[in-house]
């Protein structure tokens, strides 16, 4: 595979405007947003709450009514809807969102059952192993801890081998120790796949630790106000979080984030 023959960008968002509702009560959630995500790139989106981060992810995945999304989303040269039909996306929400009547394994298998095509490159069993849940395959969601449930959700998201993994504050509901462990684990899992990741977070440390690039969104209507490249070598380990150059990067992102707030005062 020669990189020269492929466009560098996998996902490209142009002039995205997203309006919830119609008429006088409509809310402009996102306005005039451009963003490109490269192949196997890990991008974190950070921004004040209510600025349209979740809305943006849903728009990328084609989950919003077409009438509310303006602008163009292209994935690998195809439109968003086409990309969705080709199972190019997968989603992880803040809540694990598992089917409570299905075991961990059955939940991971669900996308395969409904997509009804593509032989998995990794079986659901392998994926559960990958996220560290060997032995919990036959447990029901209510028998699993919050961290374990979120791992099941991540394994499920990888089932159809997505090109783009969209994650909306996936660790927001976890305790701090579990979250720290999940950061490293997700990076390991990601490096073992060929997936691009767009991860929404409001944790500065999470963003800087995980990302190749952190993009900062302004308060609603959301648009991109800054991009901070994160140069640290991979694989990244937990110890990175206490390094001085790491904290400098965190401060750089913090300053960019504060600047968007101040502009709107």
């Amino acid at each position: 595979m020669s990189l020269a023959t492929q466009p560098r960008e996998l996902v490209s968002l142009r002039d995205i405007c997203i309006v919830h509702g119609r008429g006088p009560t409509a809310t402009i959630a996102v306005e005039g947003l451009d963003l490109d995500i490269g192949r196997q790139e890990f991008v974190c989106i950070i921004g004040p709450s209510g600025c349209g981060k979740s809305t943006l992810l849903k728009a990328v995945a084609g989950l919003l009514p077409p009438a509310s999304v303006q602008g163009t989303v292209t994935v690998d040269g195809a439109g968003a809807d086409e990309a969705r039909k080709a199972n190019k996306f997968a989603f992880v929400f803040q809540e694990p969102t598992l089917a409570p009547w299905r075991t961990a394994l059955e939940n991971v298998r669900l996308p395969l059952e409904v997509a009804g095509r593509r032989k998995p490159h990794r079986s659901p069993e392998e994926l559960l192993d990958l996220v560290g849940l060997k032995g919990a395959e036959h447990k029901l969601p209510h028998q699993l801890s919050g961290g374990m449930k979120q791992r099941v959700a991540i394994a499920r998201a990888l089932t159809l081998q997505p090109d783009v993994l969209l994650m909306d504050e996936p660790f927001g509901a976890l305790d701090e120790l579990t979250r720290d462990r999940m950061h490293e684990e997700l990076l390991n899992i990601w490096s073992a796949t060929e997936t691009s990741v767009i991860l929404v977070t409001h944790s500065l440390i999470e963003a800087v630790f995980m990302a190749d690039r952190v993009v900062v969104m302004s308060p609603r209507p959301g648009r991109l106000t800054a991009t901070v490249g994160i140069p640290f070598d991979r694989p990244r380990a937990h110890a990175l979080k206490s390094r001085v150059d790491f904290l400098d990067k965190v401060n750089e992102v913090r300053t960019a984030l504060e600047a968007t707030h101040d502009d709107h005062r």
Binding site: G62, A90, F93, T97, L110, R156
Partner: peptide
């Protein structure tokens, strides 16, 4: 759960699959 329906749509599930695999259970 709205999220489960969104996940089904993202996996390109048919309406029948949404009914039988999510709504009926």
């Amino acid at each position: 759960d709205r999220g489960l329906i969104d996940l089904m749509r993202i996996s390109n599930a048919s309406e029948l699959a949404i009914l039988t695999k999510i709504q009926l259970p």
